[in-house]
Nucleic acid binder design. Structure first.
Ligand SMILES: NC(=O)c1ccc[n+]([C@@H]2O[C@H](COP(=O)([O-])OP(=O)(O)OC[C@H]3O[C@@H](n4cnc5c(N)ncnc54)[C@H](O)[C@@H]3O)[C@@H](O)[C@H]2O)c1
Ligand SMILES: NC(=O)c1ccc[n+]([C@@H]2O[C@H](COP(=O)([O-])OP(=O)(O)OC[C@H]3O[C@@H](n4cnc5c(N)ncnc54)[C@H](O)[C@@H]3O)[C@@H](O)[C@H]2O)c1
Lengths: 213, 213
DNA sequence: TAAACAATGTTATTATTTTAACAATTATAC
DNA sequence: GTATAATTGTTAAAATAATAACATTGTTTA
């Protein structure tokens, strides 16, 4: 199967989550319009996404919840578990680590890195925290493909370069720094300020539109 | 000016941020290709966005950094400051509050709400935390338009309904719950698990592509 | 067993977003 | 001054994503 559209991948992740709670509570099958309604999407979009991943339901009956969950798992998770590290165990880093390692998931955060000596060589939020100096050493002896960046912006590009050099293939960047990475490294940015400013803009626009009617 | 495309709004927020640091360090003017390069975009996209907001640079000279910052400010910020509240002062809520109120911005987090009695009626991360029971009361006497949700998923929809009823116009949702809100309320969701799973998928795909060459 | 119905699966259309093409303009060099 | 080069502003085209249309098919009902 060729690479799926980005937006479809995002929705697959969301389908799976709601299917998992649906599975526990409800029926064995689910209709596209039910799944759509749980996520405020259209039934067509759900059907199209499911078509794209090559799964088929039964007409008049819907999709097998269990099979669909498994099929999504095949696509999102693959076979092996994925190891991640987190750089920067400040407020955000601790929140993320704490959150992630209380969820069941195929992705594990296996180590943290810190600069601040008071946070090094300790267990924080359930995982071992190392000094950033030993980044290369630790990464060499473990199979880590993803890094989460929640460190001070000032250090973000330097550490990124080292991560890339050490063979990291994906970066989830919470610093607002626009990172430079080579082509073969995937980069996901989340910028909370942008998110807030965007929301504020559309709130303003809606109020303006209402007043102008 | 009519409502701008969503993606343009996101980039405007990013333009402004890099322009602000550029302003402090460098020249009075900036070329589209320079601004593009700082954010890893194309010069065309930068020029098109700037066209859409109705600002003009000088050919052969570029854009006045100061004027462009101001123009973006007119669009994103409007005239008045915006007040926000945050619901749920757990790990994530504290991180966000702490982060936001150390930045200069037109958006202020003015109050927090909590259920846990040990976190109520105290100053946490610099802002006053109230019991969620008093949500309606506090919102009535202040001009708050935006709410940030970082509370337990279980309570998310209930609190959302109350926020909407109390007149909130925008919600930034960090719980992974697919919230139901009326048409006139803007909703921004950020789902960290989806973000991670998406990243993991594209990492896998890239590795697969490389192996199949 | 046949007709009606209600759901899926897929192709076609539309909307949004990005990228390309290029004309217009202005600073610089000669 | 005039030619040249470099940059903006805008329209056109391409790519991506969402929506609509509808044919297909399994299920129910009479
Ligand atoms: N907290 C939020 O809600 C939030 C929101 C958006 C963006 N961010 C961004 O996320 C990052 C972290 O935010 P925070 O609020 O947790 O800040 P913080 O100051 O609490 O944490 C930063 C941590 O990074 C560590 N650090 C610095 N250099 C390091 C290095 N070279 N290697 C390893 N660790 C290093 C520091 O010691 C500190 O513990 C910042 O870039 C911030 O801009 C945070
Ligand atoms: N921490 C993360 O990195 C992260 C990442 C993604 C999503 N989330 C989501 O963000 C939310 C918060 O995560 P967290 O890690 O901070 O969890 P947390 O348990 O540390 O914090 C949740 C807080 O919400 C409070 N709360 C519960 N019900 C409330 C109510 N009705 N009114 C006000 N406050 C209430 C609790 O008392 C608690 O302090 C959760 O929905 C979680 O799924 C967190």
């Amino acid at each position: 199967m060729s690479t799926l559209p980005e937006k479809t991948i995002e929705r697959l992740s969301m389908y799976r989550r709601v299917l998992q709670t649906y599975q526990d509570n409800q029926s064995e099958f689910i209709y596209s319009h039910e799944l759509a309604s749980l996520l405020h999407l259209t039934p067509v979009q759900v059907r199209r996404d499911i078509m794209l991943i090559g799964y088929s339901g039964t007409q008049r009956k819907g999709y097998s919840v269990k099979e669909l969950i498994n099929k999504i798992g095949d696509i999102l998770d693959g076979n092996e578990r994925i190891n991640a590290v987190i750089i920067g165990m400040g407020h955000l880093g601790k929140a993320i680590t704490n959150y992630f390692n209380t969820k069941r998931s195929k992705i594990d955060i296996v180590a943290a890195f810190e600069n601040d000596s008071t946070k090094v060589d300790r267990i924080i939020s359930g995982i071992k925290s190392y000094h950033t100096d030993s980044l290369e050493m630790i990464l060499e002896e473990s199979n880590v493909t993803i890094a989460i960046l929640s460190l001070s912006p000032r250090e973000a590009q330097d550490v990124t370069d080292r991560l890339v050099f050490a063979g990291i293939k994906g970066i989830l960047n919470f610093t607002s720094v626009p990172l430079t990475v080579p082509e073969d490294v995937s980069l996901e940015n989340y910028d909370m300020v942008t998110s807030m400013e965007k929301l504020a803009y559309f709130v303003k626009e809606k109020i303006r539109d209402e007043n102008s009617l």
